[in-house]
Design a protein around this nucleic acid. Structure first.
Lengths: 225, 225
DNA sequence: GACTGAACGTACCATTTCGTACATTGTTAA
DNA sequence: TTAACAATGTACGAAATGGTACGTTCAGTC
C-alpha cells in the first residue's frame, strides 16, 4: 500500500526505531479494507478493526480521524492499487484485434482476482457515490483507462477491423459491466440458478463469452475472416 | 405487495373491521423495502422504519420476529413483485429476432425502473447471498425466466437466425449483467467519468448498445440481412 | 541530559439500537 | 354477553458502538 511493506519490516532509510508509524498506518488500512469490503460502512465495527490490528483503537482515530474518513482512505487506497495494476498492460505493440481481446480478458480476470475492490465499489454505490465524490484523488486516477481503450479503438478503425461510430467511454462501460457483474452478483446468481459460477470451467466459459461478445460488437463484418 | 393494496382499503371479503392487520403488515413491508434498499441491512434502523410506518415498533416485531427476518421478507417480496411483472411479457407470438430484442429491452428498462430491487440484490450479494439461501420461495420463483429465454432461443436456432451452441442460462447471465450494471454502478461510473449516465438520451444509447450487442452475439451471419 | 512533540495504551462516556415486558383494546365465536 | 385470542401502545432494559480524556513512552534536538 505505502512505502514499507505490511509487517514490521526495518524502516526504509534512517536508523531502526521501536515506533513504526507508517507500518501501523498501513496495517490499519489493510484490516479496514477487509472489514469494510466484507461488511460495508455501517456493518464494519471500529472495535473489531482495532482488535484485528496490531495497533489499538486509539491509533485508528489518531491516524484517520473518524470512521467515515477511514472508509474514504480505504476506498482511495483500493482505487490506487487497482489502477496501478492496470498500467502493467501494454497494448501499443499489438494489432488492434489482439489488443482489444487482451484488454477485455485482462479486465475480466483482474476484477475476478480483486473481489475486495469490487465489493468496495458496490458498497460505495449503495452510498450513492457520496464518498467518491469527496475524493479528488480518485477522479484524477481514472482518465488513463479510457485513453488506453480509445487509442486501441482508433487504431482498429483506421486499419478497418473495427467499425466506426463507437464511443470509447461507452465501450468501456460495456466491458466493465460484464466483468463487474461476474464478481458482484456471483452469490445470488449461483444460488438462484443453481450454477457454480465460481468454478474454474465456468469462469473460463464466461471469460470467453464476454471477450467474444465484445469482439463481435466492435469488429467489422470483413474482419470476421 | 400482498392481496390488499397499500392504504386502509376495505377488507376484501368479510365484514369491515377497525383492525386491519394485512394492511399494517403491507405498510411495514413497504417502508422496510425503502429503508433496507437505501441503507442496507446493518444501515437500516428498526426505529426509523417504525417512525415512518403507521404502525409502531412493537408491530414490526409482532409480525416479523426480528430485523433479519424482516429483511428476508423484504427480499422475498421484492423478488415476487419483480417476477410477477416479468410475466407480462409475451413472446410466443413473435418471431425469434423480434422476441429476443424485445426481451433484452424489457430487461434493461425493467431494471432501470426498479432501482430498489437492484439495490436489495446488491446488498444481498454483499451478504454473500446468505439470506436468499434460506428462502425456498425465491429459488422456486426463478425457473421461469430461463424457460422463456430458452424457448425463444430454441425457436431461433430452428429457424436459422440464431447460431447453435449457446446455453440459455449463460445468455441470461449476459443480458442480466448489462442491465444490472446500468443501475448498480450508475453513481460511481457517472462520477468517475463525468458522464450523466442517468440522462434520458444516454439511457437510450445504452439500451440500444446493450440490445444490439446481444443480438449481434446470438444471431447468425446470414441473419445480418 | 533536559526538552518537545510525535506515537501509543487504557479506561471510560454518551448514544444508539435491537429487542421485550406489560398493559390495553378490538374482534369473533359460543 | 362474555370468554378467548388477535392486535396494538408505551415504556424500558441491556448490550453494542463511535468517540474521547488522560496519561505514558519514544525519538530527535539543543
Amino acid at each position: 500500500m505505502t512505502a514499507t511493506s505490511s509487517t514490521s519490516s526495518p524502516p526504509t532509510a534512517r536508523r531502526r526505531r521501536k515506533n513504526d508509524p507508517e507500518s501501523v498506518r498501513a496495517d490499519i488500512l489493510a484490516v479496514a479494507t477487509r472489514e469494510f469490503s466484507e461488511k460495508g460502512l455501517s456493518g464494519a465495527r471500529i472495535d473489531e478493526i482495532a482488535e484485528k490490528t496490531r495497533a489499538s483503537k486509539r491509533m485508528i482515530y489518531y491516524y484517520f480521524r473518524d470512521k467515515e474518513s477511514l472508509y474514504l482512505h480505504t476506498l482511495e487506497a483500493a482505487y490506487q492499487k487497482v489502477r496501478l495494476q492496470e498500467t502493467e498492460l501494454e497494448l501499443d505493440h499489438l494489432a488492434p484485434l489482439e489488443a482489444l481481446s487482451r484488454l477485455v480478458r485482462f479486465t475480466f480476470c483482474h476484477h475476478a482476482k480483486n473481489p475486495d475492490f469490487i465489493r468496495l465499489v458496490m458498497i460505495e454505490n449503495i452510498h450513492h457515490g457520496r464518498f467518491l465524490a469527496q475524493s479528488e484523488l480518485i477522479q484524477s486516477l481514472n482518465a488513463g483507462v479510457i485513453d488506453a481503450l480509445a487509442d486501441v479503438y482508433a487504431r482498429g478503425v483506421e486499419s478497418g477491423c473495427f467499425r466506426e461510430g463507437l464511443d470509447p467511454r461507452e465501450l468501456h462501460w460495456l466491458i466493465s459491466a460484464l466483468s463487474f457483474f461476474n464478481v458482484s452478483n456471483q452469490h445470488t446468481f449461483s444460488r438462484i440458478f443453481d450454477w457454480k459460477q465460481a468454478a474454474p470451467e465456468n469462469q473460463q466459459k464466461l471469460e470467453d463469452h464476454v471477450t467474444d461478445m465484445v469482439m463481435r460488437y466492435v469488429r467489422t463484418d470483413e474482419a470476421l475472416r
